[in-house]
Nucleic acid binder design. Structure first.
Lengths: 292, 292
DNA sequence: GTTCCGCATGAATCGATAG
DNA sequence: ACTATCGATTCATGCGGAA
């Protein structure tokens, strides 16, 4: 199995046109918010945000497989004491464009940015808007099951310490149906609220979102060797996670600094993969899986 | 100090016209969601929801004091596999009406409704939309400070009726000093995510939201003897909490069953207040505080 | 008095069946 | 083809009865 991590330098509005129709299983991205990152995208004014984004989302609609999902991480900023409405307008406009607005997940940030204002509290949540092309789409719910709440209190008492550990390790590896049957009563499906911490201490750069965020959606909406796309790659979190999880991925970034940084970090990983390839090649002969 | 709890039977669209301009400090309400609670309320079609609500919000805009706040608890339902957009459209329409959309709080429900579907998880959050007339409004942030760390466990945990009474008695008897000590180092301002459980096991009726929800916003946006309004009173949760917290309140309910139920529950409380009035009248002579 | 278990019950949603 | 109704699914919570 060869996993490709394809990163591209340039404006995603143009680069996306080079991608074939119906070729991506999951789009996970966090676009520049309005009036932020002024230096890179020229600072999109909140009033012009929808008009700026629609041509891009049109391309995304084209490249996404009918069974695929688009997860958009976004949060409106405060302008003159008010929340902007461009996210609301974007949802309405994207529906007219042909997208289905399936769900809105909430990312509840455990460690919100500190601060104090006279007329508002700290903002500790962001939207994760799920869009689809069809009412039917791929969703692998078992992959993101969580331990039941009561389980810890009632069942754990009777179990030995080894039982607990064994259980957890199985969950982490995320095998298939055997385990889900075994776990039938001890695991529960999650809700549409994700309670994750932000990663503030990344090595070189500050990631816009923690790795656990794309990881959760990649688990939920893709299988191994599927294709993940992030048209606003930034520091490449989505792509690194996808690679680690054996998913092909495409990343597009307009800023050379970010692009080069991701590129340099990708190389050693690929080398490691090539080294280990020999070992596995002997026992398993998996077909070449191209991105397109 | 005499606290009035004024409940009115009828359509809030009409009743609201009888209230004077700029007379309410906080509006906290949870209107019937679109096409939900059909058996009790009519059930407004999602497509007609905005048109139905705008005349009401126009009256609310009129009766609210310039320093006041309107908190709207709402959540869109799923129609044919998609989230409806009427809440988005309502926000946009209310801004055109003159409201400022100051903030969106998230109510993260600990006990979400159960269920399993192939294409979505359980919905465990609702919106609490904060609207204002002016950029400057009354906000008493210190009142809702929480112990650092686990605020859900201690402060906002759902309390049984006996626990509440015990808690109140503590507050009444020199509990203040302990709190002020805690305030020094161990209290923090909350964020815009509220983590509460729904109260599904009330005695006579099912409350749409837990008492802790209006309590939090009443603390945050009003002081004692201020006026709280709930134009969709329902089981009267907002008004009971307001009364307990020494706030005047107005409740409007269209269904006689609910109206009468609230009325009956209010009487004993008022009698208790009248009984104790004699004792306090001798030492303190507080002025009559009318609702309007 | 405690602690513990059983049980009913929610602003739900989907898919099948029925008219 | 459209709407209306119904059953199945599922989990945190708090009350009541029991040990």
């Amino acid at each position: 199995m060869e996993i490709r991590t394809d990163i591209k330098l340039g404006d995603c509005k143009k680069i996306l046109k080079t991608l074939p129709d119906n070729s991506v299983d999951l789009i996970f991205t966090s676009p520049p918010y309005a009036d932020q990152r002024k230096s890179t995208y020229g600072g999109i004014h909140p009033d012009k945000y929808v008009a700026w984004f629609l041509p891009i989302s049109e391309e995304l609609l084209r490249v996404l497989k009918p069974s695929g999902t688009f997860v958009l991480n976004i949060k409106e900023k405060v302008v003159k004491g008010e929340r902007s409405t461009y996210v609301m307008e974007l949802i309405i406009a994207m529906r007219k464009q042909g997208w289905l607005w399936t769900e809105e997940f909430i990312w509840h940030k455990k460690n919100a940015f500190p601060g104090k204002w006279s007329n508002r509290f700290r903002d500790s949540w962001e939207r994760l808007l799920q869009f689809n092309k069809n009412k039917k789409f791929n969703m692998y719910q078992e992959e993101v099951m969580v331990p039941m709440g009561d389980w810890a209190k009632t069942r754990l008492k009777n179990l030995s310490e080894t039982d607990k550990k064994r259980d957890e390790s199985k969950v982490g590896s995320g095998f298939g149906k055997n385990i889900s049957n075994w776990l039938d009563r001890k695991m529960a499906y999650p809700t549409n609220v994700l309670h994750l911490a932000t990663e503030c201490n990344n090595k070189n750069h500050s990631a816009a979102f923690p790795e656990a965020l794309p990881e959760w959606f990649i688990k939920l909406f893709t299988r191994q060797e599927d294709v993940v796309l992030d048209p606003f790659m930034g520091s490449g979190t989505t792509n690194f996670v996808a690679q680690r999880m054996n998913r092909n991925s495409i990343g597009i970034e307009i800023l050379p600094e970010y692009y080069n940084m991701v590129k340099e970090q990708l190389v050693p990983t690929q080398l490691i993969l090539l080294e280990s390839e020999g070992e596995y090649e002997a026992t398993e002969h998996k077909g070449h899986h191209a991105v397109r």
